[in-house]
């Protein structure tokens, strides 16, 4: 079996894998990072979104071997220790989750939207950008609200970091 190695949430990870192992399986089964979820088998639902080299990727569409050498960020690595990421905080503050299953993918996608589209997001932009993430519980109303608020809070984050 081939060996794959990558940096996941800042830590080196290395394992021998069956070549057909998907990135999401590698994260969940080899590394026991079960925050990344599998909600479908056709790459539609977005529950498995992680960041690969800084970009949002559905980890069910990628083989673990394809991610060899990459830097991966999962939901488990988003907070800064005990301090939540502003997007996580915004999801909690705006009741943007119910069962919580789609939430990790939603948050990882949301952070990526902000990286690409900036901190002032219009409602229709957020709704269009969420095309690849399905939630069955919330009707998206509060998710849209949370992402708008999280995006604004992230600009504060940037300023704070710059100041430090």
């Amino acid at each position: 079996m081939p060996t794959v190695s990558m940096k996941v949430n800042g830590k080196d990870a290395k394992a021998d894998v069956d070549p057909r192992t998907l990135l999401v399986q590698f994260l969940r089964e080899n590394l026991r990072l079960t925050g990344t979820h599998v909600g479908c088998d056709t790459s539609q639902c977005g529950a498995c979104v992680v960041h690969v080299n800084g970009k949002a990727v559905k980890s069910c569409t990628m083989l673990a071997l394809t991610a060899d050498g990459a830097e991966i960020l999962t939901i488990e690595g988003l907070a800064n220790g005990a301090q939540l990421h502003p997007m996580q905080e915004a999801f909690r503050e705006n009741h943007a989750l119910q069962c919580g299953f789609c939430t990790p993918g939603m948050i990882m996608t949301a952070v990526d939207i902000v990286h690409r589209k900036g901190n002032n997001l219009e409602e229709h932009t957020i709704r269009e950008e969420l095309e690849g993430n399905i939630c069955r519980c919330t009707g998206y109303h509060n998710i849209v609200k949370a992402i708008g608020a999280g995006a604004r809070a992230m600009s504060g984050e940037v300023t704070k970091q710059a100041a430090e």
Binding site: R32, T34, G35, H37, E76, L97, G100
Partner: peptide
């Protein structure tokens, strides 16, 4: 009141059946 259960879900620490091994 903001939900008590949210912390584990927003940090990827929920435990769904498939997460149990």
């Amino acid at each position: 009141v903001r939900r008590k259960e949210d912390l584990r879900f927003i940090t990827g620490k929920g435990q769904y059946t498939d997460d149990v091994s």
